[in-house]
Each structure stands twice: as C-alpha cells, then as structure tokens.
Simulated scan of single mutants.
Amino acid sequence: MRHKGLLAVLPMLLALLLPGTTAPAAAAAPVQVYGAWHCGDDYCTWSTVRDVAEFDAKNHWLVDRGDGRPSVNLVVLSFVEPLKLLHRTNDAGTANGVPVGMSREIVQYFTSHGIRVMLSLGGITYTDAWDAALAEDPAGLGRAAAAVAADLGVGIEIDYEQNTAPNLTGLQAFIDAYRAVHPYDATGANPAARLTIDTAAGDRWLIDLNRKATADWLRTDRPVLDYANAMVTARPASASTAVANWQEHLDGKSQYSPPVPPLAPAKFTAGLYIAYGRSPLPECTDYPNSVQKATADWLRNAAPNGAGTTAGLLGYMFWAAEKPSTRGLGTQEPDGCEGGVGAGATALGVQTPMGPLRQS
C-alpha cells in the first residue's frame, strides 16, 4: 500500500522539482444548496389555500427544468409571522400560527420530487413581530417553530432583519429551545433539524446579528445553525459587486469594534434575484448571460480566510419564485425560470435530493 501512496503524491512532487510542471488543480466544490425562496401568488403572505393543480400550473418549472429533473433542491416558503406563530393564531389567513397557503399538500408537492422544504420565519415586513415575540416568549417561539417543523417535515429559516439593536439574547433563547427539540444533524437526514439564518449580502448591514451568528452559531468546530444565506442586495447587482459582498463574509471586518470574525465558505450561500421589476432577468431566463454563471467559478473555489478548511460556498439561493412583489413580473409559467435556474442546475451538476452538507 505504501507505493500507492507515493504514486498519488508523485505529480505534486514533480511539480515542485521540475521547471514548467504544474500541480493538479484542486477540484471545485460542488454546489450543494441550490434553492429558491417562494412568495406564493400573494406577495409573500400565503394567506389563501392553493389548489395543487393551480399551483403546479404556475410553478412547474421548479420541479421540472425541462427534462423531468427539478430546477432546485430546496424551496423556502416565505414568510411566517413570528408573533402569530407564537400565539398559534387562527384567522382568515392563518391556521395554528402558519399561513394557510403553506399547507401539507404544497409541502408534499415539492418533497415528492426530492426537493427539501423550509419555512422562513420573519422577513423585513415582520421585523416588529420578531421583536415582539422575542420580548414576550422567545423559548416558546422556538418550541412552536420546532413543532411546526416536525408536523410538516420542514426546516426553519430565521429571517430577523432588525438592523438596530436586535434582541440577540432572545434569539439565543429561541435557538436553544428549537435545538432542544431538534438537535443539530450533520447528516441532514431529519428535515426538521435544518435551522438556518439570513444575513445581509455583505458585512455592512445587520452587523450585530451577523457578528453573533458568525462568532457563535456558524462555527465549524461547534455548529449550532446549519448555514447562513447572504441575502440579495436592494436591487440586482453586477457579478463584481456580488463577489465583493460575499467576500466580506469570508474576510470578516477586523476594523469594526467589536470585530466581525471571518465566516467559513462552507457555512453560507449566495443570494441572487430571479424576479425584479417588469423585465425578465438573465438569472431566470438566460443562464449563459447571468450573474450566476459569471460568479460560479468564484463561488465554487472561494478560499477560506481565517475560518473553515475547505474552499467554495455551499451554493446559491434565488429571490424569489412566483410573485414576490406587487410591481414585479414574477416567475410565471409557461417557462418560468427553466432557462436560468434550471439551466444552471444542469451546468453546475446540482444533485436532488440534497445530500449531507460539507461541515468544514
């Protein structure tokens, strides 16, 4: 066996000794998370029950990129109002604290195609509701979220967009209560154990939240949350601007007081728009000319810079499927985003179902 080990390292030794010889390049990291936030047909409220056939007519591209394979391996239904979840509210648009459109049937529509499902708790519209719920009973909110996750077979995303004095003590209590029910699961086998958090596109917004998450919840040596999503900017960004934002997470902000530590590449995804304004975006319809294609090599090879040991972010998240805005075009069929997201899934070799995620 010893001679086989020597043969394995011989090309690298020759590269060091012989002029003009190069060592084999390291393989790019696989894109493991490739998902879309989903706003339903009522601008992210999900306040009406959806008929599955009607839902499929508007969203079939997500489960079929044109060749029978899904375009994504994750869908995040957005948003659940935290205070209603804490109170297990029942009203015209809510059942036991969850929007009625986020039904078992809609979850199964995706999971039957091998697509993982999560519910996003919050969003910028519900920042005040997050504050109120964390002030009232953060552990109770954590238990309520854990119960919904177990009942529907979904994960939970923390989207707490409080830029000024976020309640980090309360959020810690929420996470502790959730993890008491669903411990961290590196295998990813238990959908309800998937607990993630959203941060800004870079390190210059949601600073306190980002600092806390990076320092305490997204470490590779003692992980608490599975990963973070670097959200989209205020409007679609160029490839160079997008990469500059994402690099901030890798580098941290040592000049801040207190500093923001660097984040491991394997602990976050990069967000891009698929719906914005009234014209189709290349991210949705034209992969060869998309920001995704322009940044894919960087994303799969981004090097650690103080945290983590492996190169490459986990993948991409896209904002947002169907109808995220009253003013926007959305991602309606007949073709949806097969030509952008779907083509990207093929080009990047995205696997469905999603397997265990890199841990370092």
Results as ranks from 00 to 15, higher is better:
123 G>L: 07
109 Y>C: 02
248 E>G: 15
164 T>F: 06
206 L>E: 01
84 K>R: 14
355 G>C: 13
116 R>N: 10
288 P>E: 11
278 R>L: 13
72 V>D: 00
179 R>L: 10
12 M>T: 15
223 P>S: 10
309 T>L: 03
90 N>K: 13
307 A>D: 08
88 R>M: 10
58 K>C: 00
66 G>E: 01
184 Y>Q: 06
255 Q>G: 08
357 L>N: 09
145 A>F: 01
26 A>F: 05
31 V>D: 03
117 V>W: 05
99 P>S: 13
18 L>G: 04
211 R>N: 09
57 A>S: 15
296 A>T: 15
220 T>E: 06
20 G>Y: 13
16 L>G: 07
356 P>D: 05
256 Y>H: 06
279 S>M: 03
305 N>S: 14
297 D>H: 10
78 S>N: 11
49 V>F: 03
300 R>Q: 15
68 G>T: 09
29 A>I: 09
41 D>S: 11
348 L>G: 07
132 A>M: 04
28 A>K: 09
158 I>M: 12
294 A>H: 13
86 L>W: 04
152 L>Q: 10
135 A>R: 14
83 L>A: 14
263 L>P: 07
288 P>A: 13
328 G>I: 03
254 S>H: 12
129 A>N: 14
326 T>H: 08
105 E>L: 01
143 R>N: 11
42 D>K: 06
97 G>P: 05
267 K>P: 04
14 L>C: 15
113 H>Q: 09
279 S>G: 01
323 K>I: 06
138 P>G: 11
64 D>C: 04
184 Y>E: 11
329 L>N: 00
